[in-house]
Design a protein around this nucleic acid. Structure first.
Lengths: 216, 216
DNA sequence: GTAACGCTGTGAATAATTTCACAGAATAAT
DNA sequence: ATTATTCTGTGAAATTATTCACAGCGTTAC
């Protein structure tokens, strides 16, 4: 069991757990690494490597216990106590994010939203209370929030990140199309939709071209 | 100049171009690899490596020409003809995506949206016409669409992907939290918000713990 | 019992990606 | 002109991530 687990492995473990949860709902009790691999779109060896990281062992004949493995990943990934998340920016994207996460994981849920728009402040959207930006340090601290989601326009992202970090947040999920400058001990995950779409456009085009060449 | 350019490099090139565009608007004419690197949050060597891929050369004394480099990346990344994008799913997330991309890149814009909700069909949202799912093959073909965005619930994602691919789409940007099964010549980029948030939560917690240990 | 099967866990090999480090080049200063 | 400077472009090294391949094991079948 390695002392430190790579970012990619953590991501896949999250995916595995979700798939396992679905299997469990479907009444499955056991599965083999190659089955989980196929569902996750990776190789069986990759699955077994990833599971080494959390020290979970399966049986050579039954494979893995769906429930046990799911719980084992949970113990590894999740905080023992509930983690609250702060969302900054309650525009189109912010509200879509709220709706997306609403009721999904009780241990990791959005507990406060922030926006400059006075019309939104003090309202409750998707079950989440909205606050003004000024209240951010207070609320983040009193709620013990360590995770922030940035769904603000690019120009406002760095400022919002700074305020969140100063208030005690240790990790950021950044939807704004701008690289954030934060202290090295703060974890930032970027979701850059423009970049992703351009990647898809590039490879869609490239593969279409390759296909043509293949027929020669 | 390598025959094939890695996915990661393509992503960074997209980012570089955006940063260059901002610099250009700010009136900058030249910059060095280490400056672009700092803005992008990567190393200078990384920037130079990436630029090798597109065969653009800078000057040892002036660095890179902001305008030329931006255009050079554009010629490499973009299709010579406009690429239309289809969006499937006009719920909260779909509308947020429409708003996000509205008016951003003329060469790569959403030209059609699809939804099952009859109330949305035939309406124009964020400047984009909505169609029913049944019209998808027709519209995709007539518009020559090669890129699709999936913003539908998990259960509907595979079906929507299949229909898009059958209609001629070669690349998919998938927001649904489910791995898609498509032919190997179809490019899929997943934006898995649940996975991303769980990653942030994990590393936020881990770094917070490390910080504590450091003070000992 | 014991033989056969098909899995897991993992060392070793390979592949992909990033960083190092330096030769060579364009400019500015003298 | 010549020298000094500081960059670029890129082989080579280092690092990181993935895959291979197989010993060993729990189970089932006989």
């Amino acid at each position: 069991m390695p002392a430190t687990v790579s970012e990619k492995t953590i991501g896949r473990l999250s995916l595995y757990r979700r798939l396992l949860y679905e299997l469990r709902s479907a009444g499955e009790e056991n599965l083999y690494s190659h089955q989980l691999a196929q569902m996750a779109g990776v190789t069986a060896a990759q699955v077994r490597r990833d599971l080494m990281s959390i020290g979970y062992s399966g049986s050579p004949t039954r494979g893995y216990d769906v429930r046990e493995l799911g719980e084992s990943i949970g113990r590894f990934l999740d905080s023992p106590i509930d983690q609250g998340v702060a969302l900054v920016g309650v525009g189109n994207l912010g509200r879509a994010i709220m709706a997306f996460f609403a009721g999904r994981r009780p241990h990791l849920r959005i507990v406060a939203a922030f926006d400059t728009d006075p019309y939104k402040v003090n309202r409750v959207i998707q079950g989440v209370r909205c606050y003004s930006l000024e209240q951010m340090p207070q609320v983040v601290e009193s709620e013990g929030i360590q995770v922030g989601i940035l769904a603000v326009p690019a120009v406002a992202a760095q400022g919002a990140a700074d305020t969140l970090v100063r208030a005690g947040v240790r990790g950021l999920l950044n939807f704004a199309p701008v690289p954030l400058r934060v202290a090295p001990d703060i974890y930032v995950e970027d979701i850059d939709m423009t970049m992703s779409l351009e990647k898809v456009a590039y490879f869609a085009r490239q593969r279409a071209t390759q296909k043509e060449l293949q027929t020669w």
